[in-house]
Design a protein around this nucleic acid. Structure first.
Lengths: 253, 253
DNA sequence: CGAGTTGTTGACGTCTTTCAACAAGTGTGG
DNA sequence: CCACACTTGTTGAAAGACGTCAACAACTCG
C-alpha cells in the first residue's frame, strides 16, 4: 500500500521503482503522532524538518490579534505542511490538526538531496505548490464574491472532489470531522450562520450530515449553487492520463 | 540601471556579474507593450512564454459567471505573471493590466535553462512563489475576518510597503492609479462602500488621495487599523542584509 | 469641448452578526 | 455502564454592516 505523499505526487509525475522505495523509506523513517487541535508547526517558528500529513485532517490558519481564527486551507493525507520552511526563515502561519493525525518528518537537508537526486521530485513539488496557489485564489473568489450559501456549497463540493481523488469516499459519502465552528473559521462566517445554511441544505435535500459523515445527496445541484469549476485544482493531467481516477472523479468535474 | 526583475530577486539572493548580465539580456530580448485593461495572459490559455512585468500595474483576476470580477493580487514591476505556465497546462485565472504596461517575454525553454544554469535562480523563484502564497493567505484573512475599514486600510498600507521596497515612493506618497472600482473588486466590496470608507479615511486625516496620488498622512494609525503585520511579506532577509532597504522600509514594519 | 470614465451621495433593503439560551452529542472517570 | 462535564449544534430576536439602485458631479482624454 503506497504512502499518500507518493500517491499524490504520482497524480502528476512518474517515479521509478527505486525512487518510490526511497520515498517510502523516508516517510517511514521518522513519524510523529498528534492529537486533535495540536500544532504541527506553529506560526512564527522554524523547523529543520518538513512535515507530510499521512493520516488525519489538518489546516493552515492564523490567529488574529482579537483572538479570531481564520482557516486558509484544509490539508488531507499526502499534503505537504510546510514547503516554505527550507526557503523562508519562519512560518507566517500555523499548521494544526483538526483530528488526531500522523505526520512524517523529513529533514530539510534530506529534502534538498531528494530534489537534486530524484529527477521528477522538483517538478512534483512545483506542481503541488502551484495547485496550492490555485486553491488559495479560489478561496479568495469565494470570500470576495460569493455569499454564505454559495461559499459553503463550494467548500463542501471541493471536499467531495478532493476526497474522491485520494479514494476516501464511498459513493458520495465522506468522513467529515470538520465542526461547524471550523467551517465558520474557514468561510469567514459565524457558526450560527453556518448552521442555518447547513440546515437549509438539509431541508432542500442537498446533503445529509450527521455523526461526522457527510453525504452529498444532490451533487449536481450543490455544484451549481457553489459555482464550482474544477479547473483550479489542475486535475486535467491526472484525469487525462489515469483511467482509474477518471472513473472516480470524472463525473464530478 | 538594473531591471526590476533582477532587483526583486536580489532582495533574496545574490547573482554574479555574469548572471546579472545574462538576465538583463533576457529581459531586453523580447518585450511587449500593453494598453490599460488588456490581458497579459488570459484565463484558460497557455503560452510558451513567461511574462515579467517591467513597468505599469497589473492584477490577477477571475471573472465569475455573473460577470463580476475578483482581483486576487496586484502585480508591480519585477513580478512574474505566470510562473505556473511551464508546469501547468493552462492558466486558471487571467493576468491583466490596470495601466499601460510593458512586459518582458521569456520562452519557457529559456526559463528552464536558466533554472539549471544559474545556481541561485531556482532559489529566487521559490522565494517569489512562497511570498506570493503568503500574500494570498493574508488576503484570505482580510476577506474572512476583517471588516471593510480594516481591509482597505490593510491593502493601502501593504501597497505603501511594497512600493517603498522598490523605491517607488517619495516619503509616504505613491502613484496610485487603482480606481475605486478596482479596489472594490480586490476587497470584495462595492464601489460605493469603498468610496465611503475612503471618504472617512480622508476625514480622519489618515490619507490624501487625489489625481492618482496616494499620500498616507498617518501611517502609524493606518497600520493599526489594518492590523498590519509584515511577516507574510518575508522581507526579513532583505531587511537584515541590506542597510539601504532597512533605511527605506524599516520604520514601516 | 464633449463623451465616457470615475467618484460621490442618499434612501432603503438584506444578509450576516451578535447575544443569549438551550439541546444534543461526545468522551472520561468512577 | 452510567453520570457528568464539555464540546458541538440549534434556534430566536434585534442590530448593524454592506449592498442596491439611482442620480449627479468631477475628472480624463482624445
Amino acid at each position: 500500500m503506497k504512502n499518500p505523499w507518493t500517491m499524490k505526487m504520482e497524480q502528476f509525475t512518474a517515479f521509478s521503482e527505486g525512487d518510490r522505495r526511497r520515498l517510502d523509506d523516508l516517510i517511514n523513517a521518522k513519524q510523529r503522532k498528534h492529537g486533535a487541535n495540536e500544532d504541527i508547526i506553529a506560526d512564527g517558528t522554524h523547523s529543520d524538518y518538513c512535515h507530510v500529513l499521512l493520516t488525519g485532517l489538518a489546516c493552515r490558519y492564523k490567529i488574529l490579534p482579537d483572538g479570531e481564527r481564520q482557516i486558509m486551507a484544509f490539508l488531507v493525507p499526502g499534503d505537504l505542511c510546510d514547503a516554505e520552511i527550507f526557503i523562508l526563515k519562519k512560518m507566517d502561519h500555523g499548521v494544526g490538526t483538526l483530528t488526531p493525525s500522523t505526520t512524517a518528518m523529513i529533514h530539510s537537508d534530506e529534502m534538498k538531496r531528494l530534489l537534486r537526486e530524484v529527477s521528477s521530485m522538483s517538478e512534483a513539488l512545483w506542481w503541488g505548490t502551484m495547485t496550492d496557489l490555485g486553491v488559495l485564489r479560489e478561496r479568495i473568489v469565494d470570500h470576495g464574491r460569493r455569499d454564505a450559501t454559495e461559499r459553503i456549497a463550494h467548500l463542501l463540493y471541493e471536499m467531495l472532489v478532493r476526497y474522491r481523488v485520494v479514494e476516501k469516499t464511498t459513493d458520495d459519502s465522506l468522513d467529515f470531522p470538520i465542526t461547524q465552528t471550523d467551517l465558520a473559521d474557514a468561510t469567514g462566517l459565524t457558526p450560527s450562520h453556518v448552521n442555518r445554511v447547513l440546515q437549509r441544505f438539509r431541508d432542500d435535500g442537498l446533503i445529509e450530515l450527521r455523526q461526522r459523515t457527510l453525504t452529498i445527496t444532490n451533487p449536481k445541484r450543490l455544484k451549481e449553487i457553489g459555482q464550482f469549476n474544477a479547473s483550479y485544482l489542475h486535475l486535467d493531467r491526472t484525469v487525462a492520463d489515469d483511467p482509474a481516477i477518471v472513473g472516480r472523479v470524472g463525473d464530478l468535474l
